[in-house]
Design a protein around this nucleic acid. Structure first.
Lengths: 209, 209, 209, 209
DNA sequence: TATGAATGAGTATTCATTCAT
DNA sequence: GATGAATGAATACTCATTCAT
């Protein structure tokens, strides 16, 4: 199927470019250069630039859906422990994303085509958060306040992601006209802290007290 | 100071627009319309569009730095428990972000000016992750496998953020030429799971008191 | 003859489309869709788009020539009255045009593929002229200044056509560098009026018989 | 008013070009070259190419409306003979069109931007009609069947215009599904002939017989 | 200093034509 | 002959930036 191959070739090149340069900084001329085809050929397979991008993401989305589906994995949710189930989900998702880092990058919308200068500036912010957390964790380990077995790198990255998204969720998406009160923010903060501090699962009975 | 006021007015309008429409979909004409000034005036205070954006983010960054700085808070790291210290950090960060949701949005780069259609499509992906996690957590609570006291909303949001960023960190930023092996991904997954499952801190020695 | 049939099929489809949408808004893709043939096939029978259009018009022209030719009609110009001769010409021409309205439309170049919006705007102009004339003629009939037997519709249409073409002939085709003087235009106007007046208006009573 | 002057300059250049080359063959680049302005300047004054064209025609239309309006000429329709009234209308219209031959050309849609080759071909058709009529008229004059005082040129042009538009009116605009019957076309033809004959031909010398 | 008209490089998209199969 | 995928020149329109007033 020559036609399908062509379409796939265009998608592959576009994916790579969208991931590297973002939506806006990726021009049709880049795609045709990368795919070594003529300008008009792109429009034989796609309606426009959006169509390429959308096809890419829709495809990614539908593949992801089938991957995370527990049924697909032939797992009986009753015969599996909560922790094992949680682990399964996390693994499946990470396996999926590891497989196609370009689409992962696109789906994460991290610096989607900002001008280089601007993009780097924004990165600094994230990096700084992560590095502050890293320092804190290491210090915590030195003083035996953070468990030695903890993988500092993973934790710092996770905390950064969790923190930023929590902020985004409440302060951007669920933004209140009058803003959040000190109380409310403290409540969110404490719940955030609790989860990391105590973990998610019901503590084994043993001796709670 | 008339000049400073002008500059601030431009920044304020730009911030609002950049947050709402993103970098690319925010045009100089939008900014001058919002700020009720002439086209040329913008260039009296800023070199170009990038300069406005950068000023905005740099300012945000430096304010954030001073906020999270432990020194500023007059806290002695020795006289404070690890948990309290962690809580303090989280609170400070969330307080800071709650204060300026526009800049929070910009700094998070969530949908930075993608065309509406495209932006919505990408949102679907995140929402689906969060909603799947939410369902799982609720089910876990029903079966008494997830602790009742857990705030499901916050947890789902945090997990989504943590998961996406972990994927991004390893599979995009620290991307390996040959990709990650099954073993490596499992290791990352397990560390991720561990943190949420067990929490971050050294378990109290059975009988704390 | 398979080949001739194909060629005719292409011409027929093209004619219909050129008439409906005009030259520019009729694309090769429309023609092949209508004719249910492949893109390349068109170029087996015609050099290019122009060639199709030209073939169409040339054919129309040569058919028209034979129709209006008095010889063809076996009419002896000496044995026929001037009026009958005139009538014959008019009839022949109208019969010919009635037979192929698509080509009639193309040959008249009325809105040859202008964008819909633009085309409608231009139509308004013609329509207004015709409707003004119609009103005048009806009023004239009420006041018994225009003969009752006059077909107002035909007259209005004819006058519009005659007027516009006269203007075009003198002011566009035979345009003078310095323009036409008031005198000259009045002369043209009067000759125009003369021709119609004697035919349109109620003959002075005097001796009708 | 500098801005108005610019707008007018663009309109003037566009008018000239639209008239000469038609809508489709007139490109923005031609207009800016003619007006000696930058590409973007056009879009400061007009939304797009259509807008220029439409502005031109609308303006023409409204000016024409005021010119043909009898009220504007301070003419009392009651105190004027039907013939004088008719003459006035014709004169006003021709004066108006003589004044702006470019707009006249555009409004008449004669070859609106067809490729040169195609345009000339279509012209041949019109010209042939006019020349056939001219010949007939001259022959008629020789045989004393057409009055000597008749201006052959004006008459031929008028007849061509009247004929083409009559054909267009009935066979294109008022096209019937089943086509016009022989009878119907003869009726239209006869009405057409009637109008012209009474005005064109030498009146019978009272007693013909 | 403020203005806003003018600028023109840059971009997506179209569509007649070609040519290998 | 027939096909239809590939081509790429051509075109309208955008928008950050400049500069004369």
């Amino acid at each position: 199927m020559k036609a399908d191959e062509r379409k796939k070739a265009i998608l592959d090149c576009a994916k790579k470019l969208f991931s590297k340069q973002g939506y806006y900084e990726t021009h049709i001329s880049h795609i045709i250069q990368e795919a070594k085809i003529a300008r008009g050929t792109v429009y034989q397979y796609f309606d426009n630039k959006d169509d390429i991008f959308i096809t890419l993401v829709e495809d990614h989305y539908s593949r992801w859906r089938s991957v995370v589906s527990i049924e697909q994995a032939n797992i009986d949710p009753n015969s599996i422990s909560a922790k094992a189930y949680f682990q399964h989900r996390i693994r499946q998702t990470l396996f999926f994303m590891a497989e196609d880092s370009d689409l992962c990058n696109i789906a994460l919308r991290v610096g989607l085509g900002l001008p280089e200068k601007v993009s780097m500036l924004l990165d600094r912010f994230d990096k700084k958060i992560t590095s502050l957390i890293t320092e804190d964790l290491k210090m915590g380990q030195q003083f035996n306040k953070v468990r030695d077995t903890l993988n500092v790198e993973v934790t710092a990255v996770m905390l950064t992601g969790a923190l930023l998204r929590t902020a985004y969720h409440f302060f951007v998406k669920k933004k209140k006209k009058k803003g959040y009160s000190k109380k409310e923010i403290e409540k969110i903060s404490d719940e955030f802290s609790d989860i990391f501090m105590a973990g998610i699962f019901t503590p084994k009975k043993k001796s709670t007290k």
